[in-house]
């Protein structure tokens, strides 16, 4: 397998993983927008996390930021898979920022709220996977699309 082909496969896998994260973030965003996170009767166990003050930044649900981040990661990974060299320049810092954000949210759940939300943990897992894929990318320039 050539380096170029391996890189393409990594980008495709990253795009697929981002889709999974996007689905998760979309669901959480809808929950936040319908107010389901502020009551019981919807998804169990998640109120303590999704209904906490940490679930919003400036009044905007964190899930919406996650949705934007996953969509961006998916878009950049898709373009990179098709050989758009600049997409990689944007993909790496996007996933880097998502990774740092995930670390913060895990800290909040573990040490501040002492509660976990399964959807947030799934999102953390997908972000860690994306970070791992980015680390696995062979160094060097992508072939520019002609």
């Amino acid at each position: 397998m050539t380096v170029s082909r391996f890189r393409t496969i990594i980008y495709i896998v990253a795009a697929i993983v981002s889709l999974a994260g996007l689905a998760d973030a979309t669901y959480l965003s809808v929950q936040a927008l319908t107010g389901e996170t502020l009551g019981c009767g919807g998804s169990p166990d998640c109120f303590r996390v999704l209904g906490s003050p940490y679930a919003r930044i400036g009044g905007i649900p964190v899930a919406l930021f996650g949705l934007l981040a996953y969509f961006s990661a998916f878009s950049f990974a898709t373009f990179a898979a098709f050989g758009y060299a600049r997409a990689r320049i944007f993909l790496i810092p996007t996933i880097g920022a998502m990774f740092l954000g995930t670390l913060w949210l895990l800290y909040v759940q573990a040490f501040l709220l002492h509660a976990y939300c399964r959807y947030c943990l799934f999102s953390a897992a997908t972000t860690f996977l994306l970070a791992g894929l980015v680390i696995a990318l062979p160094p060097g320039r992508d072939r520019a699309v002609s």
Partner: peptide
């Protein structure tokens, strides 16, 4: 093709989000 794929995913996300919102809205 990547533009088409990204656009389709964007539409699918908005569409499914809207459907889910309508279904879940009390």
């Amino acid at each position: 093709l990547p533009f088409v794929i990204v656009a389709l995913v964007a539409l699918a996300t908005i569409g499914s989000g809207a459907m889910l919102y309508r279904a879940k809205r009390p």
